[in-house]
């Protein structure tokens, strides 16, 4: 997440002090993304260096604070940023995906159990976020939207696990001998034989991948 552009957005509403910007940032994001003071001031100094904000007042002396305001260049930068989609074109190196892919290859590993362990963890996290939403003031849009974003993100991972589980089960059923009709309806056995029957999947890729966050 861009703290730099969040600062510009807050300053677009009017001039402000660094400490106030930090409080506003945390309030607007439902306290989900706390910031430290040092990060705020470092960001403001860089914005000022780049001509995107300007300051008045002097930090020297006890209790003195700088008042920051957005410049015309800063307003243009903010507008461009809001309209620019984040780069989602390259897949992140997702540890969970790697673990499931690796489980397919490890002799004796139960892929369905690996998937379920991750699914349960994710759903428990979702329960915690939902409790936050349930207890929140419905008028607190910032918190509601931030929690929704987290719930949708986790939900997408659970859906991927569900799809992976179903796909593996289907391939397993197709690979089962014809004289075991119950194979499709009984729980999958330890997956040693299943793994051997699956197509060999590449665990590395030459494609350039970005590291998440």
């Amino acid at each position: 997440m861009s703290v730099r552009h969040a600062m510009l957005a807050l300053l677009s509403e009017g001039s402000s002090y660094g400490l106030h910007l930090r409080e506003e940032f945390e309030a607007r994001t439902g306290d989900v993304w706390p910031l430290n003071v040092g990060q705020v001031y470092t960001t403001l100094q860089r914005l000022e260096r780049d001509g995107l904000v300007a300051s008045e007042g002097d930090e020297d002396g006890p209790g003195a604070q700088k008042m920051f305001r957005i410049t015309q260049d800063g307003a243009r930068e903010l507008d461009t940023w809001l309209r620019t989609p984040p780069d989602l074109s390259s897949p992140p190196r997702d540890e969970l995906v790697m673990k499931v892919l690796i489980a397919l290859r490890v002799p004796g590993a139960s892929v369905s159990e690996v998937i379920q362990a991750h699914r349960r963890y994710l759903v428990e996290l979702m329960q915690q976020w939902t409790r936050i939403k349930e207890d929140a003031d419905p008028a607190d849009l910032s918190l509601g939207l931030a929690v929704d974003a987290e719930l949708f993100r986790l939900d997408a991972v659970v859906r991927w696990l569900d799809a992976a589980d179903a796909r593996i089960k289907r391939v397993t059923a197709d690979a089962a001998p014809a004289d075991t009709p119950a194979a499709a309806t009984t729980p999958a056995p330890p997956h040693t034989s299943v793994i051997e029957s699956l197509p060999r999947m590449p665990l590395t890729t030459n494609r350039k991948v970005r590291t998440r966050r």
């Binding site: 759903v123 329960q127 986790l154």
Partner: peptide, 28 residues
């Protein structure tokens, strides 16, 4: 999963068997 997360406890079922359930969280 989003709708299930409203529940106090979530039970997972697969091939007619209960395979797992969530553990109540310490606190949101």
């Amino acid at each position: 999963a989003q709708l299930a997360s409203w529940a106090d406890r979530i039970i997972f079922i697969r091939d007619g068997r209960i395979t797992d359930q969530t553990i109540p969280a310490v606190g949101p």
